[in-house]
Write a protein that binds this DNA or RNA. Sequence first.
DNA 1: TTGTATGCGTTATCAG
DNA 2: CTGATAACGCATACAA
Lengths: 363, 363
Amino acid sequence: MRPPTLRDVAAAASVHIATASRALNPATRSLVSTSTSERVVRAARSLGYRPNPIARSLKTARSDSVGLVIPDLTNPLVPPMVRGAEDVLSPAGYNAWLVNTDDDPARERTQIHSLRSRQVEGLIVATARLDHPLLEALHEEGVPIVLANRQLGTGHIPSVTADNAAGSAMAVRHLVDLGHTRIAHVAGPQDLSTGLLRQRGFLHAVQDHGLPADPDLVVTCSAWTEEAGAHAFGALLDRGVEVSAVVAAHDRLALGCYDALLSRGLSCPDDVSVVGFNDMPLMDKMRPSLTTVRVEHYQVGAEAARLLLDTFREPRRPARAVLLPPTLTVRASTGPARSRRPSGMSRGRIVAPAGVQARSAMP
Amino acid sequence: MRPPTLRDVAAAASVHIATASRALNPATRSLVSTSTSERVVRAARSLGYRPNPIARSLKTARSDSVGLVIPDLTNPLVPPMVRGAEDVLSPAGYNAWLVNTDDDPARERTQIHSLRSRQVEGLIVATARLDHPLLEALHEEGVPIVLANRQLGTGHIPSVTADNAAGSAMAVRHLVDLGHTRIAHVAGPQDLSTGLLRQRGFLHAVQDHGLPADPDLVVTCSAWTEEAGAHAFGALLDRGVEVSAVVAAHDRLALGCYDALLSRGLSCPDDVSVVGFNDMPLMDKMRPSLTTVRVEHYQVGAEAARLLLDTFREPRRPARAVLLPPTLTVRASTGPARSRRPSGMSRGRIVAPAGVQARSAMP
DNA sequence: TTGTATGCGTTATCAG
DNA sequence: CTGATAACGCATACAA
């Protein structure tokens, strides 16, 4: 049995189809007498009428939907962002189309094309790179876009992110308060705003506390994986660099640091304190539970959606970069710096393993 | 600048709009001469023509999209299922609409309504309860549905799930091989097929190994949370039930068991071995890393999508219940049963804390 | 306040 | 093989 259309409702209420349309549409109901409007509504209800959004879209050239461009749904940071966005979009009458790009530019291109052909009215994009011609081009074209979690280098497109520099500073501050002076940074990909700004924030914070910005204390990962973190931090340890604490630019990198320490017989936090970034689910269940800079990804998604809705209302509003304040969640992976023994191999001091020449920091 | 329509393409190729339509549509291209079809395709490409799926849907009464009804995107089991489904649907030309129900029947009802009004051609539902009138009704109506991860009690609707009973049996078998004879079960909600079948599988397996199905060894949780698991297993421990191993119906319940043990000064696996269910992300990073029954949720999603596509081709095909074989991932949370000392308080034997009367198992 | 007429972009059914 | 025409379901400018 074919679902009832407006025509059926109009017939049942013995009014013209146009009248039925007006009566059923809250915005135009005032143009119709209360009595007939009531009659129409009753007829619609009794027939189980549901407006056909396809037909409506064709007519109004609106789809009431936005595209959500994400790297990968199975990345634990993503689902909270998505729900945050949906929880704002939904009450505003918008639906969200999700697409995964797997951080592959080609796939991203086709996915965004597919979204546009489905007539989405705007885009929330969580896959921005610092240099991102595609997004710049779309923005030039006038496609409403809001970036979530990551920004462009140019800042031309509105964005909602955590205040990454502030987050790094909080981590450093915490470690300095615990007495640490040799603090390393396991940085993330430098072509992403998250990686870059967390590193910059780290370097500034270290200097603000009067500590030298020793290049030996910074290692960079090209991916946010445990393996990358373990490899990078392991290399730093193996170089014999003196270090009692590390700020990782991502919880996964921090877990990699755990692995690097474990495989070298070192303990966290006794030998080295570790701070992560993001506070992914289950970070409280690690051993040791991870001290980390908490980012409210739900809020990032929600705020991005609000910005997008704003853009719909005021298309030519200048780009804004909304920074959400992170917080520091202190758990068991950070502890006081060991007071250094005058000489010898204290457990708090990392020395190069046999066969590796210890290299002293530049003066 | 308005995006080009079929009319524009037809004009540019100086053919009738109907001819342009046929030329551009792979299925009807054969009705058009090669030369004109080439001309049309060239015109379309040079104009950057993209068919309007809204208009097409209105005409064809197809949406090329299916609904994916999930409990909550932030549940770590869900994203792999979703991607599995998408990776099958996408090559078949279907897009997936995602909705979260938060396991709230009212919300589920409205979300499914919303999907239907968006003209989805079928539903993949991961929120089934054993008793689920809404789904039965939809199925009666002829809406193509495939259940994923959970089944109905009646089995009237095609489903794809892990073989939950087999999974429980694998867990029990593993523990028996390690010498355990007092094995508990922390069961999940019994109104869900997952909870029920894992419990049943546990009880059968225990009996198959000649162990008594002691009711004291089974506790039930009404939610898949760590708190519920900790509370239930804690209560079992506090009753003084002798137990050296536990099969939890979910990794989260298993983590709750960890908590219950920890807060009672007991150690895993030295005092009690713990087996989880699902192998959620990061379970290898727990301390101890969790031995668990691995369910390939990606495959569950993918297979559910395949079944749905089958249903589109053969609407009246009888319901099938596809069971995917789980595997046991052995990690550090399970170890050999302690050989029991003749008397005294061995660490391997749990005794009731002061103030709690130890209750012996029924004879 | 209600009815009339038209079109959104596409596909399908006719003729020719 | 191609062109003309209608129709999908709805919203709206215009007329009454």
